[in-house]
Computed example of a mutant assay.
Amino acid sequence: MIRLHRRPVAVLAVAAALAVAMAGCTPTPPPAPSAAAPEVSSSASAPSPGADGSASSPSAPALSPTGSATENLPLFTQVVAEVWGGAEQVSGRAYIDALDAAGFDKTAMQVTPDQTVIGNPAESIEFSVRWGEECLVGQVGPSIGDPVTAVLPGLSTGDCLIGQTRPIDW
């Protein structure tokens, strides 16, 4: 003879009731990203209306001599994007000159050659500005696609780039 126990039936009934009750629940959405999260690159945003209803442009990035490399990355990125949008996209000198004109210290810069050792155009060029213990680094070229900018740790040698760089003697 088979005996039925009331306890397992009661457990199943409670489990079924919980399943029905929870079927209407929806998961809680994840929290919004923190406004304090640093951005790796900067992009232009759409103008917002001013108090008088006219369009006002967002504030342009500016050099902060006492700021960190991360705080100066938006200006570095903007300068790189402007040169990339011009006729001298793969000219290291154009990036160095534009960064210098924006106020970055030319004596703290490095740039790789525009040509390979056999005289062909470089597939990419890199350039940097040493900023304290860190480096603002950019990379552009046909093999890269859109320009890349980042803040990276400085090398123990005091440089930012590994490998052969060219003198900035202009």
Score class of each variant (00 low, 15 high):
Thr66Ser: 09
Thr66Leu: 07
Thr66Trp: 04
Gly67Ser: 08
Gly67Asn: 04
Gly67Ala: 01
Gly67Asp: 15
Gly67Val: 14
Gly67Lys: 10
Ser68Glu: 08
Ser68Phe: 08
Ser68Gln: 13
Ser68Asp: 10
Ala69Gly: 00
Ala69Leu: 09
Thr70Phe: 04
Thr70Arg: 07
Thr70Val: 05
Thr70Leu: 12
Thr70Gly: 14
Thr70Met: 14
Thr70Tyr: 00
Glu71Met: 07
Glu71Lys: 00
Asn72Pro: 09
Asn72Ile: 10
Asn72Glu: 03
Leu73Tyr: 01
Leu73His: 00
Pro74Gly: 04
Pro74Lys: 07
Pro74His: 03
Pro74Leu: 08
Pro74Cys: 07
Pro74Trp: 08
Leu75Cys: 02
Leu75Asn: 10
Leu75Ser: 04
Phe76Ala: 06
Thr77Gln: 11
Thr77Ile: 12
Gln78Thr: 06
Gln78Leu: 08
Gln78Gly: 01
Gln78Val: 02
Val79Tyr: 05
Val80Tyr: 05
Val80Leu: 07
Val80Ala: 08
Val80Pro: 11
Ala81Val: 00
Ala81His: 12
Ala81Thr: 12
Ala81Pro: 01
Ala81Leu: 08
Ala81Phe: 01
Ala81Ile: 06
Ala81Glu: 09
Ala81Met: 05
Glu82Arg: 09
Glu82Trp: 09
Glu82Lys: 14
Glu82Gly: 02
Val83Asp: 00
Val83Pro: 10
Val83Ile: 04
Val83Ala: 02
Trp84Lys: 03
Trp84His: 09
Trp84Ile: 00
Gly85Asp: 10
Gly85Thr: 05
Gly86Ile: 11
Gly86Glu: 14
Gly86His: 05
Gly86Val: 13
Glu88Cys: 01
Glu88Arg: 15
Glu88Ser: 11
Glu88Tyr: 10
Glu88Asp: 15
Glu88Asn: 13
Gln89Ala: 06
Gln89Pro: 07
Gln89Asp: 02
Gln89Gly: 13
Val90Tyr: 09
Val90Gly: 10
Val90Lys: 03
Val90Trp: 10
Ser91Tyr: 00
Ser91Pro: 12
Gly92Val: 08
Gly92Trp: 09
Gly92Arg: 05
Gly92Leu: 09
Gly92Asp: 10
Gly92Lys: 10
Arg93Trp: 04
Arg93Pro: 01
Arg93His: 06
Arg93Leu: 13
Ala94Arg: 08
Ala94Asn: 03
Ala94Pro: 12
Tyr95Val: 01
Tyr95Glu: 07
Ile96Tyr: 03
Ile96Asn: 10
Ile96Asp: 08
Ile96Trp: 08
Asp97Trp: 13
Asp97Glu: 15
Asp97Asn: 11
Leu99Gly: 02
Leu99Tyr: 09
Asp100Glu: 15
Asp100Cys: 01
Asp100Ala: 10
